[in-house]
Design a binder for these strands. Structure first.
Lengths: 204, 204
DNA sequence: CAGAAAAATTGCGTGCACGCAAGTTTGCGT
DNA sequence: ACGCAAACTTGCGTGCACGCAATTTTTCTG
């Protein structure tokens, strides 16, 4: 049941790579970090680094978004008696508004560079798969397809909320948008609530 | 009102590039097409090609998906009296099951190469922006955010449906999945119908 | 515990994506 | 019609992503 040595080593390597990527990017600025440096700092060959991450941006960003996927799914699972739509909203808001133990400079650096910002938004899609698993468990395994659609929709809604939120952050306060991240997430996810309710009614 | 010379030239260049990309890929096989060749066939410099497409895969795939975005949005707009949820389903099904005037070999080539398949799935996201516009018009311009969330959710649902559909196409008939593309699209989009109904009720 | 099978790491080679800055074209105001 | 400003094109240079095949490491089986 426990992951086994092989899998644990892989996760350790992955963690070492993303942490090295973020640390070096913060130290020198993202444009002064060569892939070679990240690999060396993590103790692997450059080619191996590319087996874990398809781009430098992904590696840096994943140091921030890494466990969010797992934590969102867990936060939903921790609310088994709550209405599913609410459980998802609360779980997402909880995980996305908790600053965690991160360097606060990380988000600013990411949002101010177009390439990193794009990778950060792409990363919202990563919550779909773990979320689909936990939704399938609540909706009944026969509704796996519905669970996948709902999970992917949540990811899309989160992306829109985050996108609107980081525009003012990185782009100077030119466009004055309504609401904080918390409110944006709630508003975006509220649109999907009726779909969750219907799915839950089908097989509650 | 008419696009103007500048914009029309850009669209012509874009069309020339994607058609050249697809034609060459079909003639020689996708791996035997150099970016240089595509650019030359379209009469632009290689660097210019990269101003239009971020990857060779995008160029090839966009020859197939090009106008689908616009056509889906138009197909929704063409059903103003229909319940919004149904209009979206019918529009999507109509556009995705119409083979169009394409070379039938194109889809097979795309689905059998991992890189092209990935680009093809990514391209489903492109329907979100035009769709969001037309949804905003139906829901009232004050609900632009809802429209964006719904549109992005539709794109996500379509992606899941298409993903399940092309697995058997390219991967040999090992996994026998339930339903054709039409049925997969209907099933995936049905999950979102309650959200559309609620949005329509809010400002019908 | 041995040895084979499966999986991960690595080096190499190739084409590529993209920032940048200079040159060229288009469009608009007067 | 003129000329300026904004937008598009192009060439160059650099680091990079990824297929492939050989090697090393982990796991499985008897």
């Amino acid at each position: 049941m426990t992951p086994g040595l092989r899998e644990r080593k892989k996760q350790a390597t992955r963690a070492a790579l993303r942490e090295a990527a973020l640390r070096l990017a913060l130290e020198r600025g993202p444009d002064q970090v060569r892939v070679e440096d990240i690999a060396a700092a993590a103790g692997v060959a450059p080619r191996t680094y590319n087996n874990y991450f398809a781009s430098r941006e992904q590696a840096i960003v994943s140091a921030v978004t890494a466990d969010r996927e797992r934590r969102v799914a867990e936060a939903v699972a921790a609310r088994p008696q709550m209405r599913l739509a609410d459980a998802v909203v609360e779980a997402v808001v909880e995980q996305y508004t908790d600053p965690g133990e991160q360097d606060p400079r990380a988000l600013l650096m990411i949002t101010s560079r177009p390439a990193l910002r794009a990778a950060y938004l792409e990363a919202t899609a990563d919550i779909a798969a773990p979320l689909a698993d936990v939704l399938a468990r609540r909706l009944g395994e026969t509704h796996g397809e519905s669970a996948r659609v709902l999970a992917a929709s949540v990811a899309a809604a989160v992306r829109i909320a985050v996108e609107g939120w980081i525009r003012p952050l990185g782009g100077g306060g030119l466009v004055v948008p309504t609401g904080s991240l918390r409110e944006r997430l709630r508003a975006a996810l509220a649109v999907l609530a009726p779909a969750f309710d219907a799915a839950e009614r089908r097989e509650g």
